[in-house]
Simulated scan of single mutants.
Amino acid sequence: MNITASMVKELREKTGAGMMDCKKALQECDGDMEKAIDWLREKGIAKAAKKSGRIAAEGLTRVAVEGNTGVVFEVNSETDFVAKNDQFIELLDTIQTVLLAAKPADEAAALALDVNGDTLETVIANATATIGERISFRRVAVIEKSDDETFGSYMHMGGKISALVVLKGGNAEVAKDIAMQVASMAPQYISRDHMPQDFIDHEKSIQLEILKNDESLNSKPENVLKGIVEGRLSKSLQDVSLIDQVFFKNPDQKVAQFLKEANAEVVTFVRYVVGEGIEKREENFAEEVMSQISGK
């Protein structure tokens, strides 16, 4: 497979590894980005895989709460300029209203919702025609809580990141703090107990390969090596476990300790980042101008 400069650049941004290491990793893995990340980690060249995906598409996320219903959704545009447009913001307001009222099960159900005689899909299509850029409704999560539970929500940079959490116990202030933790520290699971076994097994295999490639450990007894693997695995999993993360307001305290003191427990959380996992088209304006001049 032909390994392009853009592929190498992307892998370097994801791992922090050198250009030549990234190129070799992609060659060894036939251009598979995720396998190349693992390959670099196994060789000890990349410290950790970045799981957030390629952040590229523009637009906004939004989190809103009404009674016992909370919604988080994302609407994409082609440029950040349009995402700040009043018409775009009004569209998000409309979408928020119908989502909270109808509580759709998924994106398809959301797009079929009635908005003053039109479907939401038609409203978005009309916005595309009016604004002059492709507008797309990408995803939605509807969360219901019970009366004895508390919502915490937070939007960063006007909606570049949105987080919604549900707590049992605690209060609104504690819930807001946990939502800010989720937004800023990007946990993937509430705790290790919530992680799928295949996710844990995959992380363990990475740590085993790293150990195999560390010649300084070759002479260590098997029980010592096992302890090292478990220690490294535990550290790796802590980074993606909400309750095991360092609390953003107090570097001397874990989230679990903060929750215990507040007599609170995390029931669930959702975190959306604009453009997460979407590859952005690369623009080369110099080439575009030259092609127009030459008539190509």
Rank of each mutant, 00 (worst) to 15 (best):
Phe88Trp: 00
Glu107Trp: 07
Thr15Arg: 10
Gln238Ser: 12
Arg62Met: 10
Leu99Pro: 06
Gln96Tyr: 03
Gln292Tyr: 08
Ile161Met: 11
Gln292Gly: 13
Ala102Trp: 08
Gln188Ser: 12
Ile210Val: 14
Leu91Trp: 00
Leu40Ile: 04
Phe258Asp: 00
Gly275Glu: 07
Asp214Trp: 09
Phe258Gln: 00
Glu78Phe: 07
Ile131Asn: 02
Gly275Arg: 03
Leu211Ile: 00
Asp177Phe: 00
Gln27Cys: 09
Ala108Asp: 14
Glu34Arg: 01
Gly59Thr: 11
Glu107Met: 13
Leu208Cys: 11
Pro221Arg: 15
Lys160Ile: 05
Phe269Ile: 05
Thr79Phe: 13
Lys176Gly: 01
Pro104Ile: 12
Glu261Asn: 12
Pro196Tyr: 07
Gln238Trp: 08
Ser219Leu: 04
Gly44Trp: 02
Leu211Glu: 03
Thr4Phe: 10
Ile243Asp: 03
Arg232Tyr: 04
Glu13Gln: 10
Thr4Glu: 13
Leu92Met: 14
Glu215Cys: 03
Gly18Ile: 01
Glu144Val: 14
Thr4Val: 06
Asp21Tyr: 01
Val123Ser: 02
Ile243Pro: 00
Asp93Tyr: 10
Val8Ile: 03
Ser184Ala: 15
Arg54Gly: 05
Gln188Val: 11
Glu74Met: 08
Val65Trp: 06
Val224Arg: 07
Lys260Pro: 01
Leu167Ala: 08
Glu74Lys: 00
Ala108Cys: 06
Asp38Val: 14
Lys176Gln: 11
Ala102Ile: 02
Pro104His: 03
Glu261Phe: 05
Asp239Pro: 00
Glu282Val: 10
Ile45Met: 15
Val166Lys: 00
Thr15Gln: 10
Ser191Met: 11
Cys29Lys: 15
Lys9Asp: 12
Ala25Met: 02
Thr4Ser: 15
Glu261Met: 09
Asn116Ser: 15
Asp114Val: 01
Gln27Leu: 06
Gln181Cys: 02
Ser219Gln: 11
Glu34Gly: 04
Met33Gly: 02
Glu276Met: 13
Met157Tyr: 08
Val240Ala: 09
Phe137Thr: 05
Gly67Gln: 05
Leu11Gly: 02
Ala101Ser: 06
Asp118Ile: 00
Lys84Pro: 04
Cys29Asp: 15
Phe88Val: 08
Met7Leu: 07
Gly227Lys: 11
Thr15Leu: 10
Glu107Arg: 15
Lys220Ala: 09
Asp32Asn: 05
Ser205Gly: 09
Ala141Tyr: 00
Trp39Phe: 05
Val82Pro: 10
Asp148Phe: 06
Ile161Phe: 09
Phe247Met: 05
Val229Glu: 09
Thr61Met: 07
His194Lys: 04
Met180Leu: 03
Ser236Gly: 09
Gly277Tyr: 02
Ile161Lys: 11
Leu26Thr: 05
Val267Ala: 14
Glu265Lys: 13
Glu279Pro: 01
Ser234Pro: 01
Ala102Gly: 10
Asn250Met: 09
Asp80Met: 12
Met20Gly: 11
Val98Ile: 07
Lys14Leu: 13
Glu107Tyr: 04
Gly132Glu: 12
Lys23Pro: 08
Val165Glu: 03
Ala175Phe: 09
Gly44His: 06
Ser216Gly: 07
Leu113Pro: 04
Asn171Thr: 13
